[in-house]
Design a protein around this nucleic acid. Structure first.
Length: 219
DNA sequence: CACCAGGCCCTAT
DNA sequence: ATAGGGCATGGT
């Protein structure tokens, strides 16, 4: 199997993901921080608490809360103290743009990424997730699952995040929808096949492709 | 009981 | 440069 086909193979297995990252742009920005090393179910609870406390103008409202207040709201998501501070840092940046997403989007992807990475608590995966899903600009999000799939199936290993990113962006066309779908497919694949298994190391996409190929050959 | 989850930062080699 | 520890909740 060629890496050019990974996307279509994943899609044939798991189907189109549609709006894989739920919520408005504002909610996506917040949940990008909440989901750091955290189960999505817990993110939903935390986000729900925030929405209950901030009925409208989510980002501006949240930015006016104290770190302690925020920590209390996002408690279910874990790491609540550090995440509360990270949200504050992120919101301080967004405030420069008067909390208007459209104003941020007038900058280039590289500028936005660089600014996001200057925020303490926003690493590459979080920054790229925000750019791809909240700002809807084409950037390839790399996570642990992405690395694992490349390693397992294609025996491809890089040392750095940006090497993975550049590699995949050189193979697949720079398309927001494509990158959104792709990342969603990778995560869903990992979830679907790992969650119920005792060890994630046994969660091999190879198995999945193998069984799919068998089905095809049986037809 | 242990291990994991849609990471990131800081520190010690 | 890079490995290891801390952050913390809820599910399996």
């Amino acid at each position: 199997m060629k890496i050019d086909n990974l996307y279509s193979v994943l899609k044939s297995i798991h189907g189109p993901q549609g709006k894989w990252w739920p919520g408005t742009a504002e909610e996506i920005i917040i949940s990008a921080v909440l989901t750091q090393n955290t189960n999505w179910k817990n993110v939903e609870r935390a986000l729900e608490n925030i929405k209950n406390n901030c009925k409208n103008d989510l980002l501006r409202c949240l930015s006016e809360k104290s770190p302690d207040k925020i920590a209390l709201m996002i408690k279910p998501a874990g790491f609540f103290n550090i995440k509360a501070q990270r949200l504050k840092n992120l919101l301080t940046w967004i405030e420069f743009y008067n909390f208007e997403i459209e104003r941020i989007k007038t900058k280039t992807i590289d500028e936005i990424r660089s600014e996001l990475l200057n925020i303490k608590g926003i690493g590459k995966e979080t920054a790229d997730s925000i750019i791809l899903y909240a700002f809807e600009l084409p950037i390839f999000v790399i996570d642990a699952y992405t690395r694992r799939i490349l390693a397992r199936i294609f025996d491809i290993k890089f040392a750095k995040y940006d090497e993975y990113k550049n590699f995949l962006e050189s193979i697949y066309p720079k398309s927001t929808v494509l990158y959104q779908e792709f990342h969603g497919l990778i995560v869903e694949h990992a979830k679907a096949y790992c969650r119920t298994k005792p060890s994630c190391d046994l969660c091999l996409i190879e198995n999945c492709i193998y069984s799919t190929k068998r089905k095809e050959s049986e037809n």
